[in-house]
Simulated scan of single mutants.
Amino acid sequence: MADIVFQPTFVHQEFVDGPDGDRVRAAEPNGFNARFGAIESDLRQLSTVVGQIDAAVDRRGTGPADHVLTLAPMLQGAAGGTLPWRITPSGAAQFGQDEDAYGLMEVALPDNVRLTSFRVMGQVGVNVVGLAVLLSRVKIPGGTPEVLAGISGATDPFDSSADVDPSLAVTQTATYRYIVQASVINSGTSVTLAAFQIAYTSS
């Protein structure tokens, strides 16, 4: 896009008082007609430039925008599952050694946006076994969760991302609920999940 420029043309020339000074005139290069005509021309040009700026702002606002939603892992237990995660005063989800844990949480997402990635952060010992964190959708009023993105593994600190399945990436909040599920089997060490992040693109 070309630069938007406003270049004024009117330059005020001081009137001079006194017997040898200027006389008020309508015509001539220094008369009021010429001066006000130059000001009027500048105002028209300024109006055009303002319109160009407004159009440029509108065009910039219509393109895709990237967003990141950060969530505290407020994981709740579920019927038939293993022991629930403990929520610390800082809002992290934590579990101790030699135990199994399971939890899930609802995620409120905007409608008709494209999910791009799922990220999980925390502290996980190297001996952890069976850690899995899934971003899924469930058809309303009920059904089997469809996994959009899944993360597993063990590093300390734990910071891992996964791309969302492109075929399931566009949100449909009138048709699906969105959940995060986190489970760990016989951790052998403490596990702390500090935050979840969901990246998405809106048009």
Rank of each mutant, 00 (worst) to 15 (best):
F6S: 10
Y200G: 04
L115V: 05
T116I: 08
V68K: 08
L168W: 01
L134K: 14
S190A: 15
H12I: 11
L109S: 02
G130W: 02
G91M: 06
G153L: 09
L134G: 00
D17Q: 15
F95H: 12
R25I: 06
A65W: 00
Q52P: 00
L83W: 02
G81M: 04
I151E: 04
D100I: 01
I53H: 02
S136G: 13
Q172W: 01
Y176I: 11
T70M: 06
V50N: 07
T9Q: 15
V120G: 05
R119S: 08
A92E: 14
V133C: 15
R25L: 13
S136T: 15
N186T: 13
G77K: 05
S160R: 15
L109W: 03
M74C: 00
R44E: 07
T155P: 00
D3Y: 03
A56L: 05
S167I: 08
P166W: 07
A154R: 10
P64H: 07
L131K: 05
F15H: 07
V5I: 15
I179H: 12
M105L: 11
V124T: 09
I140N: 09
P84T: 02
V124S: 06
V124C: 07
A154F: 03
D58W: 00
T171P: 01
I53D: 00
D111F: 06
G18L: 07
V50F: 08
D3R: 12
F118R: 05
F10W: 14
L131F: 07
T171S: 05
M121R: 13
S160W: 03
P64E: 10
A65M: 10
T189V: 13
S41W: 03
Q52H: 01
T173K: 00
D163I: 00
I87P: 02
P166E: 10
V170N: 03
R86L: 11
G31M: 04
E14V: 14
A174S: 09
V120Y: 06
Q45M: 11
Q94S: 14
T171I: 02
T189C: 14
T82G: 06
T171C: 01
L75N: 09
D98W: 13
V164G: 05
S41M: 10
D111K: 10
G143F: 10
A38D: 12
S41C: 02
L69K: 08
R119T: 14
I185K: 12
A26Q: 09
Y200V: 05
E99G: 12
V180P: 11
T70V: 15
F95C: 10
Q76V: 09
P8C: 12
I53Y: 04
T175H: 04
T192S: 09
Q123E: 13
D163S: 13
N112E: 11
V57H: 01
T171E: 02
G143W: 12
L75T: 09
D20V: 04
S90Q: 09
A132L: 12
R35E: 15
M1E: 05
A93G: 06
F32R: 14
G103S: 06
T171W: 01
F15K: 14
V184K: 07
V147R: 12
G130P: 05
L131Y: 06
